[in-house]
């Protein structure tokens, strides 16, 4: 696990993929939750792509998607998958290595 990942001069740029299933309530909720977390914690320093698996079924194989919604943190390493509608912000932040110091 990397703790103090990149030097402050060059903060890590997050590369995130959010896999959803059309416009189901759960998908919508996930997108909203993600937007909120990004706004609060990533200060615009991220690259989020929302992928609808119905439109791009191949992507499920490439990213090993089993459940939806799934947020995949592609960068920075290591790869993490956060499964669910992202309603539990703390778990999401833990998965993104952004857990706040208590």
């Amino acid at each position: 696990m990397d703790h103090d990942s990149a030097p402050p001069a060059n903060p890590p740029r997050y590369k995130l993929r959010l896999f959803i299933t059309g416009s189901t309530p759960r998908s919508t909720a996930a997108i909203q939750n993600m937007r909120r977390i990004c706004a609060e914690h990533l200060q615009g320093d991220y690259d989020l792509e929302v992928i609808d698996v119905y439109q791009h079924p191949d992507a499920t194989r490439d990213y090993q998607i089993v459940a939806t919604p799934t947020l995949v943190k592609v960068l920075p390493e290591p790869l993490r998958k956060i499964i669910g509608d992202l309603s539990d912000s703390e778990r999401v932040l833990a998965g993104l290595n952004l857990a706040q110091e208590p």
Binding site: F19, T21, R26, A29, A30, N33, V53, Y54, P57, D58, T60, R61, Q64, I65, V66, A67, T68, P69, T70, P78, L79, R80, K81, I82, I83, G84, D85, L86, S87, D88, S89, R91, V92, A94, G95
Partner: peptide, 24 residues
């Protein structure tokens, strides 16, 4: 492939990913 170590659960989910893959 499911790697327990790289998975975090947050909120409700479904297995639509498997359905889509299988269907495809």
């Amino acid at each position: 492939h499911i790697e327990r170590a790289e998975i975090e659960l947050s909120g409700e989910y479904d297995l639509e990913g498997v359905f889509v893959r299988l269907n495809h």
